[in-house]
Design a protein around this nucleic acid. Sequence first.
DNA 1: TAATACAAACTGACCAGTCGGTATTTTTGG
DNA 2: CCAAAAATACCGACTGGTCAGTTTGTATTA
Lengths: 200, 200
Amino acid sequence: MNKQEMRRTETRNRIIEAAALCFAESGYDGTAVATICETAGVSKGAFYHHFSSKQQLFIVLIDQWLEGLDQHLVALGDQADDPASQLLAMTRVIGQIIQLPNQQMMIYLEFLNRAFHDPQVLQATTRPFHRYRQQIANIFEIGVADGTFRSLNGDSAATIVIALAIGLLIQGFLDPAAADWEQVSQEGMEILLKGMKDKS
Amino acid sequence: MNKQEMRRTETRNRIIEAAALCFAESGYDGTAVATICETAGVSKGAFYHHFSSKQQLFIVLIDQWLEGLDQHLVALGDQADDPASQLLAMTRVIGQIIQLPNQQMMIYLEFLNRAFHDPQVLQATTRPFHRYRQQIANIFEIGVADGTFRSLNGDSAATIVIALAIGLLIQGFLDPAAADWEQVSQEGMEILLKGMKDKS
DNA sequence: TAATACAAACTGACCAGTCGGTATTTTTGG
DNA sequence: CCAAAAATACCGACTGGTCAGTTTGTATTA
C-alpha cells in the first residue's frame, strides 16, 4: 500500500465515520452532505471523489453495518451449541443494544425507514435480513429434529423471534426508561421458547 | 352549522386526507406542502389558514390515526371477555392490517420514524401508546388473577405482545410476500400465550 | 508528465412559510 | 329589512434559505 492509497482509504473512512454519526443523529434527510464533509474535515470535492451520491454512501454504510452484525451473530452461534442457548445468547445482545445509548442502532432504524421509500435501500437492507432469518430458521429446525421444540415451521418461528427483537428495539428507543429492556427481552425470549417446547 | 363552518371543515378535511395520502406515499420529508395543496385542490393560503405548520398538520394526523386505533381496540375488547381470546382477536387485526396494501399502516411507520427525530412527534406518538400498553397489561393481570396465566408482570407481558405486533408489521412491510402474515401472527400469539400459561 | 486526491466557489432546483389582496359570509345599527 | 362594516376563508406570487451535485483549479504522488 503506497502513500496515495493510504491517504485514499483514510479519507474514505473519515467520511464514512462522519456519515454514520450524522445520519444517526439527524437522519438521512436531516443530514446535509456539507455537514458530513465538515464533520469529516474534508471538502465536498473529496466527498464526490469517493462517493457518487449521498444515497450510495448510505448504502455502503448499510452493507458495512450488516456485515458487522453478521460476524457478531456467527460468533455467537459458535459459542453455544444447543438451539435454546444460542437463541438466548442472541437475545441477550438485543437487550444490551437497547440499553446502551447506541448510535449504531439508531442508524439501523434509519435504514429501515429509508427502505420503505427507496427501492435500492430496500434491497440492500432485506437481502442480508433474509440470510439472518434463514440462519435462525436452521437453529429451529435442528431444535425440532433433536426434540427440543415441538413440530413447527422453522421460517415462521424465526420470523416470530425476529419480530420480538425488532419490536423490543423500537419500543426501547421510543422510551428507553420504560422498562429494564435487557430483562424484558430475556423474559420475552424465555416465554417464546417455553411456548415452542414439546407438549404443554 | 352555518355556511362558513361547513366550508371550513370541508376544506380542512380535504387537506388532512390529501396529507395522509402524500405522507404515506412519499414520507414526511419527501412531501412538499405545495403538493399537499395541489392534491387537496386548495391554495397555500388555505393550508396555512388551517394549520400553523407542516409539522402541526402531521401531529393532527397522528392524533386522528391513534384515536381510530383506540376505538378499534376498545370495540375488540368488548367482544370477547376471557383474556386469551381478547389478545387473539387483537392479533387477528394485526395480521389483516399487514395483508392489505394499506396506506394507513405506511403512515404509522412514518410517525415512528419522525418520532425518533422530533420530540413533539415523539410525545404525540408515545402518549397513547402507553395507554394501549396499559390496556393490554390489564388484560394480563386479569388473566393472572383468574389463573389463565402463570404469575407474570402485566407490563412486561404487554410490552412483549406489542413487540411481536410491531416486529411483524415491519417485517410484513419489508417483504409482504415472504409469509402468510395473518397465519404467522396468529401462530406467534399462540406461542406467546402457551408460554405464559400456568406450568409447562 | 500524467494521474490522482482534494479544495471550494458556484449552480439550479426546491421548499416552508409570508404577505398583500380578493371573495364570501356574518354582524351591526339605523 | 337593508346597507355598510367587520370578520372569515381563501388565493397565489414571492422571499429567504437550503442543499445535492458540478466545475474549475491546485497540490501531491506515481
